[in-house]
Simulated scan of single mutants.
Amino acid sequence: MADPQPAAEPAAPVRVDTWIWCVRLTKSRSLAASACRAGHVRVNGERVKAAQQVKPGDEVRLFHAGRERVVVVRRLIAKRVGAPVAVECYVDNSPPPPPRTDALAMGVRDRGAGRPTKRDRRAMERLQGRMR
């Protein structure tokens, strides 16, 4: 069987919002453009607009979904590709994601038990870690 051919590299430079979407760092191009407008995208340390061009060797920092992604552009692509091909287009230097915390223990009240008393509320807050 023949290996699937990766997308051909474009001759022209690619917009940063398009590239971020193509390599699957964001779910949609509009989210990538919104991140650029909000100042959550930096190329080589500088905030950029969505139309900024990227080239191989550029460091792209994206703060998205509560996490910072730091990637170095290895290859330019102009069309969205599958995840295995997308990973080949950048070098991921991101810090490891924060550990997932289990759901905090919550005080569960029986249905129809009425409003919690002040004592019950304080016990629930203590369980949730909101008490001083």
Rank of each mutant, 00 (worst) to 15 (best):
A8V: 09
G82A: 11
R61H: 04
L104S: 06
Q5T: 15
P95V: 05
A33L: 00
Y90S: 12
K118E: 12
R74Y: 01
P95D: 06
G66T: 10
K49A: 15
L25G: 03
R61P: 00
W21I: 07
V48C: 11
V60Q: 01
Y90V: 13
P56Q: 07
L25F: 04
I20P: 09
A12K: 08
Q128T: 08
T18V: 13
E88M: 14
R126T: 09
R109M: 14
V108C: 03
N44Q: 06
P99T: 08
Q5P: 04
E46P: 00
R126G: 02
C89T: 11
M124A: 07
A35R: 11
N93V: 07
Q128W: 09
A113C: 06
A78Q: 14
G82L: 09
I20L: 15
A65C: 05
L127E: 12
L62R: 03
K79V: 15
H64K: 07
V72G: 02
N93G: 06
A103T: 12
G129I: 10
G82V: 08
A78M: 08
R80M: 07
C22P: 03
G57D: 05
A35Q: 05
R37I: 10
S28N: 06
R74P: 02
E9Y: 00
P116H: 03
A50Q: 13
A50K: 14
V41S: 04
